[in-house]
Simulated assay, not measured.
Amino acid sequence: MELHKIEQLVEKYFEATTTVAEEETLREYFSKDDIAPHLEQHAPLFNYFAKAKEERFTKSVPLKPGINYMKWVSVAAIAIFTVGLYFYQPTPAPVTLADEYTQEEIESAKEAFALLAMNFNKGTEQLYHLEEFEKTTNKFLTKK
């Protein structure tokens, strides 16, 4: 097989566009001893796949879990459940403002929030004037 075709197949392989037959051609080429020097770096990749195909798992796989394993899992579940019941603390009923504070305290807090809102609005009005000032000065500064 000509070298140019092998180079094209290697490029296609790394772009993931080769077919199964083309990959088999590459495996056959790289399994030989006469590989082009600039393609020798790819030889271990294709040789690995050939060796990995021959590997087999020889150990036995247990299909049933051991009886002792299931006993210990059930004991652990019961222990966790018991500890959870021991440390369980029910949450108290939610407390309303009327239960916590007197009516005078609630009205005083409302007045304080209204004053805070009024002062906050004054501050934002000043920011609006500052923004208008900035727009006007930018008109004069960027004028050509």
Results as ranks from 00 to 15, higher is better:
R27M: 14
I67D: 12
F140V: 06
T96K: 08
A50K: 08
L141I: 01
T17A: 15
E100H: 07
F49M: 06
E15V: 08
S31F: 15
E15Q: 10
M70S: 11
T91D: 07
K53Y: 05
F87N: 05
E54C: 00
I80R: 04
V75L: 13
G84N: 15
K139W: 05
V10T: 03
R56M: 13
K53T: 00
M118R: 04
L127E: 03
A21F: 09
K5W: 09
L63E: 06
Y88E: 00
F133T: 02
V73M: 09
T136N: 02
E100P: 00
I35G: 10
N121P: 02
E28W: 04
A114N: 01
Y128R: 14
Q8C: 03
P94Q: 12
E54V: 01
A109R: 07
V73N: 11
K71E: 10
L97E: 12
M118P: 00
K71R: 14
L45N: 01
A79N: 06
I80S: 04
H38S: 08
E107V: 09
R56C: 02
F133Y: 13
Y101E: 01
E100C: 03
L116G: 03
Y13T: 11
L97P: 07
T25L: 15
K143A: 12
N47F: 04
L39Y: 14
L9F: 08
T25R: 05
T82H: 01
V83T: 03
E2I: 10
H42S: 00
V83R: 01
P37M: 11
Q126P: 02
F57Q: 11
A112F: 13
T136C: 01
F140Y: 10
K5H: 12
E100Q: 14
E15S: 07
Y29H: 04
N119E: 06
D34F: 09
Q126E: 14
W72D: 07
K32F: 05
Y88A: 01
T142N: 09
H4Q: 14
H129Q: 09
A77K: 11
S108F: 12
F87I: 09
Y13A: 13
T136A: 08
L3I: 08
K122D: 03
N138E: 12
P92I: 02
F133I: 04
P94K: 07
L63Q: 11
K5L: 15
K64S: 15
S74Y: 13
T124V: 10
E134I: 13
F133G: 08
P62T: 10
K53D: 04
Q89P: 02
E111H: 00
K59L: 12
P44G: 07
F81M: 03
E111S: 01
Q41D: 06
I78P: 00
E40V: 15
T124R: 04
K143T: 03
E125L: 15
S74A: 14
S108G: 03
P37G: 06
T96E: 10
N119C: 08
E111M: 01
Y13H: 13
F113N: 03
K59W: 06
F140D: 02
K59Y: 10
A50Y: 03
L26P: 00
T142E: 05
I35H: 07
D34Q: 13
I6M: 10
A50F: 06
T136E: 09
P44A: 09
K122I: 05
Q8P: 00
T58Q: 15
